[in-house]
């Protein structure tokens, strides 16, 4: 196998984008998976995609549109899920379908060639620019820094939100921080992974790690390693077999999740739960 390709700038950018994307998506993924907020994350991902397409249509930076839409959708979904005026599944489903509708509307309004829009759709880690890479690296550093700085509050909120609230932790602030971090992470990874596939990279490594450990610190570490492996393996597959990069990354992460589930020590839980019920 010829590795001389590693000398080229575009491949170095892709490898670094995989490293940063793998880490940051996995960190927010751990929070989202532990809080059982998967559908909220999917919804934010589609909002970011719709915002980016608005940017392409109106001629401003798509990432600005993605950031605005993802933050606004997080700001709408959070209270809807919290206040319980509607069933959370219903309210999030309505926002999700609205975002999908807007994405297709903006796509339809884009005049001429839709190459940029399609790139946002599928993602292309091999063509990620220096500017995008710096933005992604910055977001990764901020998300990882916040996760370390507020680790104890985050752990309390994602595992015991009501308890966290009752002991005087600013649980609502942390909850919205997690939703906004998800939006920012999706925005930063949009170009390399793609609007349709980004959420799998958030969900799969974290869900795989969730199968393997009862320690949150270990879960963050394992998920990050899985995220990086998914990106790099997907990248290599994409380059050597000439396959779409975003799809390769997501399929790799899905295989990792399948393996983690098959070999999960937590599978024993089912037997333990049955024993509890019958005993």
């Amino acid at each position: 196998m010829d590795f001389s390709i590693l000398q080229y700038q575009f491949m170095q950018n892709a490898i670094l984008a995989g490293l940063c994307g793998g880490i940051t998506c996995s960190i927010v993924g751990v929070f989202v998976v532990t809080m059982h907020l998967s559908f909220i994350g999917v919804c934010i991902a589609h909002a970011a995609f719709a915002g980016a397409l608005l940017g392409v249509w109106l001629g401003f930076n798509p990432l600005v549109g993605a950031l605005l839409f993802s933050l606004v959708s997080a700001g709408i979904i959070g209270p809807m899920a919290d206040r319980g005026e509607l069933n959370p599944d219903t309210s999030i489903g309505i926002v999700f379908s609205l975002m999908l509708g807007l994405a297709f509307l903006f796509m339809g309004m884009i005049p001429g060639s839709r190459t940029e829009a399609l790139n946002l759709f599928w993602g292309s880690i091999l063509t990620v620019s220096r500017g995008n890479l710096i933005f992604l690296a910055l977001v990764t550093a901020i998300i990882a820094g916040l996760a370390v700085a507020f680790y104890k509050e985050i752990q309390a909120v994602i595992c015991h939100r009501q308890v966290a609230l009752a002991v005087g932790i600013p649980a609502t602030l942390i909850f919205y921080g997690i939703l906004f971090s998800t939006g920012v992470t999706i925005t930063a990874s949009l170009r390399s992974i793609g609007g349709l596939l980004i959420y799998s990279l958030i969900l799969n490594p974290a869900a795989a790690a969730y199968q393997l450990t009862y320690s949150l610190k270990r879960m963050l570490l394992i998920a990050s390693v899985f995220g990086i492996i998914s990106c790099w393996t997907g990248l290599a597959t994409s380059y050597f077999l000439d396959l779409p990069s975003g799809a390769s990354i997501v399929i790799t992460s899905s295989i990792i999740f399948g393996l983690a589930t098959a070999f999960s020590p937590k599978r024993k839980l089912k037997r333990w739960q049955q024993a509890q019920l019958t005993g």
Binding site: T34, K152, E153, Q155, A156, C159, H160, V163, A164, V167, I169, Y210, Q211, T213, Y214, S215, L216, R218, M219, K266, L269, W272, Q273
Partner: peptide
């Protein structure tokens, strides 16, 4: 039952 937090950590949440 899969929650990634043990009893000691849960009790410490009271102090946070």
């Amino acid at each position: 039952p899969r929650l990634p937090i043990n009893v000691r950590e849960t009790v410490m949440v009271g102090r946070y």
